[in-house]
Design a protein around this nucleic acid. Structure first.
Length: 691
DNA sequence: ATTAACTTCAC
DNA sequence: TGAAGTTAA
């Protein structure tokens, strides 16, 4: 793109021109940045920068990329309808560089965008503000993603909450309501953008096209479609949410999460509409429906909390927040990992979930808990591997939400479930899938097994298995790990973890700066990494035949069964009315969304480098940035444009010491003092150490 | 009415 | 596991 200066390139020379930088706020309605630009008058240049290399290992997976591409088309059409020129798109390995260039190209004097709270965005956006300010450009950023900004929600000591329930209760009882949703601007004038260079963005390669075409049958990205989905949910499934949400293939999930992830839907709109429904139902005395609203809003609350955690603890996607978990000796076993991905663990509910995830990019919330809990507690694989796999495959992959979910499952949050409690997939199976319909849908080889045995085929009499055409260990696996063995290994691992933790604390008390080794730094398996050609800033789709991933089913030794299965998956399409959508990837479709990573260290997110990024001194303390709550209620709109979420150095924050992730010299002791419910674990460990 | 036993569900 | 809510006595 030419560096020729600007106004000439992009037409006229208006008094004022603004760039609106779209990211994960791909909507026209209730978009404060867009509204502010439109309100300011002058010309508005809507822009999108595709810079996935910035995400390091979290390069968006195939389904995520497909969603973005569709959503951008929709956004572009909407903007044009409002009178704007095209959505200007740029491709770069560095969004800040691309944006500076765009500002120069257009001669813009103002830049508007909405806040993001993932660690990379926090740093990048701060840098952007500084660089633009240095060039005399006015930058304003807004909250478009949350009910309340993370720094607004604090406890009585004005410290961030460390437990979800308390956090959410506070959100629900704030002095002021979340801002009411904004209407779309009536008119956007972009001036003449015909000469403003835009780059074609490539979100899929040839091999992905077939699978993506199937996605389009089940999902329609785009903010107006998101809005329709919301309306449909409010008028239908929401009322029964409290009853139905427990079923594995429940028809009453909202299916809004991918829309929310890309900001096609404003949570504030969702919140207000659900609240209104709730009032109506409450007045009618419909308690079940009222409760449904409470529960659904809670899941919105969890999404809020994930941003809250990420803002307050930017390493939460890669390091356990509770320090002792860093010493957990994970089982580094790629073959277990592969078996889990393929859905061949021998536990039907787990396998069904993994195959659904693979085939559709979707998984019911409950089943996410089942498969991730199995991953962490039975297989004891490093949780970040599982999280990365979710990132690569889920349609609603969301770094903040997934980090919260996996840390919760791993027992590394103050309010986590205990790590040493293994959930039994068999019991969960009868709970979430009492008739085995879900299992039979996704594991064709078990279709003929009676419900009595469907969740524990290993206990079934030989005659029953024979009648069902099942030969355990042959066409359906025996359990990969027995639960008793898992429990035993888990106890050993925990005891080892506490010993290491104690040793590390002793080392640090002796004046050493660093503690002992950190098991949270287990690298991703190579096949989960990607290859980025930095020179061209294009991701090179290294074609790797990942046969283990192509068919969500049998071992390769069983070709006969494999054929049956693919036929079955195809046929079942019209019989799956209850399943939220009907996308089936043909099992033979070849895909290589996993790409190998040989990129240099600059963008790599590993423990140390990441740490350095955040250790860079930043002048702004959260206290300095965050207005007081009372202030906020009175002058919200006037001030919001001035506030940027800037990660505050942990040392400056008195509270951070409860979370080891933020400071090198912090042990889990302080956390344990603060969170009495963990003392049980602590006492147990002391006991085991004294043996 | 008050307590104890029993069930449910966790972010 | 244990807090909260529910039922039974």
């Amino acid at each position: 793109m030419s560096a020729v200066s600007s106004s000439s390139l992009c037409g006229g020379d208006p008094a004022m021109r603004s760039v609106v930088w779209f990211r994960r706020d791909l909507r026209v309605e209730d978009n404060p940045a867009l509204a502010a630009a439109a309100r300011a008058g002058g010309e508005v240049v809507p822009a999108y920068v595709w810079s996935p290399e910035e995400e390091g290992p979290y390069y968006p997976g195939r389904v995520s990329r497909w969603w973005i591409s569709q959503s951008l088309k929709h956004l572009d059409a909407s903007l044009r309808r409002l009178g704007a020129g095209k959505l200007v798109t740029r491709r770069s390995a560095d969004a800040v560089v691309a944006l500076l260039q765009l500002v120069r190209d257009t001669g813009a004097t103002h830049v508007y965008f909405n806040h993001l709270y993932d660690p990379i965005s926090l740093v990048r956006d701060h840098r952007l503000k500084e660089m633009l300010a240095a060039e005399g450009i006015v930058v304003q950023s807004f909250n478009a993603d949350l009910l309340y900004e993370p720094w607004e929600v604090v406890d009585d000591e004005r410290q961030p909450f460390t437990m979800f329930t308390a956090f959410w209760n506070r959100c629900l009882s704030m002095q002021y309501d979340p801002p009411a949703p904004l209407l779309p601007p009536k008119k956007i004038n972009s001036g003449d953008l015909s000469m403003c260079p835009s780059e074609d963005l490539i979100f899929e390669d040839d091999s992905e096209r077939g699978s993506n075409a199937l996605l389009a049958r089940a999902w329609t990205p785009g903010w107006q479609n998101a809005d329709k989905a919301l309306t449909a949910f409010l008028n239908g499934p929401l009322a029964d949410y409290s009853v139905n949400r427990k079923k594995a293939d429940s028809a009453s999930t909202s299916l809004l999460s991918p829309h929310l992830h890309f900001g096609e839907l404003s949570v504030r709109k969702v919140f207000h509409l659900v609240r209104m429904k709730q009032l109506v139902w409450s007045n009618e005395g419909n308690h079940a429906a009222e409760e449904s609203c409470t529960l659904f809003l809670r899941s919105i609350g969890l999404r809020e909390y994930s941003r809250y955690l990420s803002f307050n603890h930017p390493s939460s996607h890669e390091r356990p927040l509770l320090a002792h978990l860093r010493f957990f000796p994970w089982v580094v076993n790629e073959s277990y990992f592969k078996i889990w991905r393929q859905g061949r663990t021998g536990y039907p509910l787990v396998d069904a979930g993994m195959r659904e995830l693979w085939a559709t990019g979707w998984l019911h919330d409950r089943i996410r808990v089942v498969v991730s809990s199995f991953f962490v507690k039975v297989l004891q694989l490093p949780w970040r591997w599982g999280m990365k796999y979710f990132w690569d495959t889920l349609l609603d992959a969301d770094l903040e939400s997934d980090a919260l979910g996996w840390q919760y499952i791993t027992g590394s949050l103050p309010d986590s479930r205990e790590l040493d409690r293994i959930d039994n997939p068999q019991f969960e199976g009868y709970k979430f899938d009492p008739h085995g319909e879900y299992v039979r849908r996704w594991i064709p080889e078990l279709v003929r097994l009676p419900t009595e045995w469907i969740h524990h085929p290993w206990d079934a009499p030989v005659s029953v298995l024979q009648a069902a055409g099942i030969e355990l260990g042959s066409n359906y696996p025996l359990p990969i790990v027995e639960l008793d063995a898992a429990k035993a290994r888990l106890q050993e691992a925990l005891s080892e973890m506490w010993q290491l933790e104690a040793a590390s604390r002793a080392t640090m008390n002796n004046g050493m700066e660093e503690g002992l080794g950190d098991s949270s730094e287990v690298p991703f398996p190579e096949e989960l990494q990607m290859e980025v050609d930095r020179a061209t800033a294009n991701v090179v789709m290294t074609v790797r035949r990942r046969e283990d991933q192509m068919v969500p089913t049998m071992t390769s030794s069983l070709n006969r069964a494999e054929t049956e299965v693919s036929a079955d998956l195809g046929n079942s399409e019209d019989t799956r009315a209850q399943v939220p959508f009907h996308a089936h990837f043909h099992p033979r479709v070849e895909r290589e969304d996993m790409i190998q990573n040989t990129e240099g260290p600059a963008l790599r997110i590993n423990g140390t480098h990441q740490h350095n990024i955040f250790q860079q001194p930043q002048n702004h303390r959260r206290e300095a940035l965050a207005p007081s709550v009372s202030e906020a209620s009175s002058s919200w709109t006037g001030r919001e444009g001035a506030v940027v979420p800037v990660w505050s150095p942990p040392a400056a924050s008195g509270h951070s010491e409860t979370f080891a992730a933020d400071e090198a010299d912090v042990s889990s002791r302080s956390y344990l003092d603060r969170h009495p419910q963990s003392h049980r674990l602590m006492n147990w460990s002391q006991l085991s150490q004294s043996l």
